[in-house]
């Protein structure tokens, strides 16, 4: 059964109450920045027409969300499971401490994308961004996968500054001709092999399918893969006192 809510009439709290009490397919119309939509939601699928506010899908626990529009900050904060698809761009702190599930962003994302991402057992979070991200991409990343496809970037590194600061796990794939020139010493950057690219092929195909891009062309580009530097780990040298 499909249910439709009009966000603008309800305001964020009533809207979220209504979403919490409803299972199955939900459509949210007239969305103008209402926050916390689908917080910790599970077992429902939500289509949002408009622009959801901050913390869309925070603590998401298995629900699926499609946004026909842009999303704002903190999409998928501490997300545990589920899917978020944004047919537009997303703001800062996308996927903060995400532990599971998949996020696809058609366009760009802001600062601090995917920071603190971690993986656990069968849970391996994935963020795919079509365009570019802001600075501090993958800061403190402990696990999971971030793919930035660099569409429209003419081969330039599709990131801001300080990518991977404090990275101590996981993988970041960047589709570009030249990798970022300011990577910290905790990060190793290598040109992706065919096997590396094959390992993210399913996500690229999904991206292409969702947003109407050419998967073969995306896969043909050069990728760089960022991983933690095992010989120079992120840690402080201590002496017991």
């Amino acid at each position: 059964m499909a249910v439709t809510f009009r966000a603008r009439e309800l305001g964020f709290q009533a809207l979220n109450d209504a979403v919490r009490e409803t299972s199955g397919d939900i459509t949210i119309e007239d969305c103008y920045g209402e926050r916390f939509i689908a917080a910790s939601a599970e077992g429902k699928s939500i289509t949002i027409n408009g622009t959801p506010g901050n913390a869309l899908g925070c603590y998401l626990n298995g629900a699926s969300i499609v946004v026909n529009g842009n999303a704002q900050d903190a999409v998928g904060d501490t997300m545990n499971d589920g899917t978020i698809i944004v047919h537009g761009s997303a703001g800062d702190a996308l996927g903060y401490a995400m532990r599971g599930g998949v996020v696809y962003i058609k366009g760009n994302s802001g600062y601090r994308t995917g920071i603190h991402m971690k993986q656990y057992k069968d849970k391996r979070p994935v963020i795919v961004v079509g365009g570019k991200t802001g600075s501090f991409l993958g800061e403190y990343v402990a696990g999971g996968l971030i793919v930035v496809l660099g569409i429209g970037q003419d081969g330039a590194a599709p990131v801001g500054r300080f990518t991977g600061t404090g990275m101590h796990g996981g993988q970041i794939f960047l589709r570009c001709e030249t990798p970022p020139n300011d990577l910290p010493s905790q990060v190793v950057c290598t040109k992706a092999t065919q096997e590396d690219v094959a390992s993210i092929d399913a996500y690229i195909r999904n991206y292409a399918l969702l947003f109407g891009a050419d998967a073969a062309e995306l896969t043909r580009g050069t990728f760089y893969v960022l991983t933690p530097n095992a010989s120079n780990p992120y840690k402080q040298m201590y002496v017991a006192n």
Partner: peptide, 17 residues
Amino acid sequence: RMIPVGADAISPAPHHD
């Protein structure tokens, strides 16, 4: 903690959001 065995658990002082 929901992280793999042997993985570092780093909580920086600031919440970066």
